[in-house]
Design a protein around this nucleic acid. Sequence first.
DNA 1: ACAAAAGTGTTGTGCGTACACCCATGC
DNA 2: GCATGGGTGTACGCACAACACTTTTGT
Lengths: 243, 243
Amino acid sequence: MEIFYIDEDKHYVAIDCIIFGFDAGELKLLLLKRKFEPAKGEWSVMGGFLKREESLDEGARRILLQLTGLTDIYMEQLQSFGDVNRDPGERTISIAFWALIKVNDNDIKLAKTHGAQWVSIEKIPQLIFDHNNMVQKGLKTLRNKIVTKPIGFELLPEKFTLPQLQSLYEAINQEQMDKRNFRKRILETGLLDKMEEKEKQSSKKGAYYYMFNKEKYRLFAEMGFHFQMKAKKDSLIKGNCQV
Amino acid sequence: MEIFYIDEDKHYVAIDCIIFGFDAGELKLLLLKRKFEPAKGEWSVMGGFLKREESLDEGARRILLQLTGLTDIYMEQLQSFGDVNRDPGERTISIAFWALIKVNDNDIKLAKTHGAQWVSIEKIPQLIFDHNNMVQKGLKTLRNKIVTKPIGFELLPEKFTLPQLQSLYEAINQEQMDKRNFRKRILETGLLDKMEEKEKQSSKKGAYYYMFNKEKYRLFAEMGFHFQMKAKKDSLIKGNCQV
DNA sequence: ACAAAAGTGTTGTGCGTACACCCATGC
DNA sequence: GCATGGGTGTACGCACAACACTTTTGT
C-alpha cells in the first residue's frame, strides 16, 4: 500500500467522549483531569488518539472501556472539531462522541483510577481546548435525540420508577412536567412493563418499579418515536444550565 | 512544535461534500467521475484531502469552490466516516459535509470542467467507497433539517413561486402535500414576501413570484422554526428514492 | 371554448395541556 | 395523626388535515 496519496498531509486524529450519566435527580458528565501535556491537570472530557488499525467507533469504544470498564455502552458520533489551533500542542482533529451510561452499573471503578468525576451539567467547569463546545453540542444533541428515540432508559438502572423517569426527562430538558400527563403518555406507548415490586427509599408509600419492554424499545429505535411535552406552565427550572 | 504527540499515529483526512440542488421539480445531487486512482473513472461525490493549515470548514469551502466557483454556499458538517478499509487505497478518514446550491446560480461552469453532473436522487448510481452511505445519511439529515430550519430557500433562486416551493418540499420528502394547506401554513409564517411579477413559463395563468424575507429567515434560523405537514392522504410519491 | 395550472375558506376532530384530590405508609 | 411523595381522570382548546370549486389566460 502507501502508494496513492503520498503528497497529502497527515493529521493527528483524536477521539473525545462526552459521557452522560444520571444520578440523584441530576444529569451529569464524566470529566477528568488531563494527565499529560499540554494542559496537564486541567479538566477535560475523556479522549485519546485514533490508532491506525481501528475504526472511529472502535476507537471510541476503546476509550470508553479504558475509562469505565464497560463494553456495552450506548454511543453515537457527535461531530468533528478541526480548527487549526484548537489543540495548542499540535494540530489535531477531534472526532467527538457522546455516550450514555448507567451510573450505578459498576460504580465505575476504573473511573476513579483515572481521576474521573461525575459533575452536574449545571456546574460544568472550564474545560480545555474546545471541550466546552463539545459538551454544549452533545447536550443539544441529547435533547433532540430523546424526542425521537427512547434513549432515556440507557441512563437508568434496569428497574426504575416513574418518578425517576420523569425526573430524568426534567433534568435533560431543564424544565418541569406535569405528573399526570407524563405518566399517561409514557405508559400509553407500551414501552413500560410494570413490576410488582416497589421502591421504598424515596417515599413512604413506595413507587412501583418498571422495566422497559425490549421489543418495543427496539421497534421504536428503528421505526421512530415521538415523545415531547411542553413544560409545565410557568416553570422552567431555575438556574439554567450554563456550559 | 511537534513536541507532544510523537508516538501517535497520523492519518489522511479527506473531506467529501454531498451537494444538493433542485431543478425541474427534482432533488438532485452533484456527482462526478473520479479522476485519480484508486477507483478512477467511477462515480463519487466531490472530495479532497484536508490540508495542514486549514480548518474542516475551510477545507469544505475550498472543495466546494473548486467544483462550483461559488463562495457563499449553505453548508453543514454531516458526519465522519472512518472504517479502516473504507478507502481501498490507504486508510483515510473522511469528514462529510452537505451543501445546498441554487442550481441556476451560474450554471456551475466549473462543474463541467470537472466532469460533474446533476443526478436525480431517485437515480443515484453505485458510488465509490462508502459514498452511497454518505448520501443516504445526507438525505436523512436534509429531511430532518428542513423541519426545523427554513433552508428550502437555499435551493431556490431568489424569486420563486409557491408551486415551485411546494414541489421542492415534495421532492425532499418524497410525498405530496395539499396545496391549500401548504400555502396557508407557509404564508402565515411571514417568511415570504409577495412580488408583483408573475412567472409565466409553467402555466398560462402565471404564478406570483415570492422572495423570502431575510430578517424573518435569520430569526427562524436562530430561534427555531417548525414546518412539517403530513402527506396527502394515500399519496406517497411513486418509486421511492433508492440510494 | 377548452385545457392547464393557480388560487382560495371552512369544518371537524384528535391530540395535548391544564388542572385538584385521594392514597399509602413511616414516623 | 400527620407529613411526604405516589397515584389517578376529565374537560377544553387549538392546530392540523380533509376537502371542491373558481379564476386566468394561451392556444
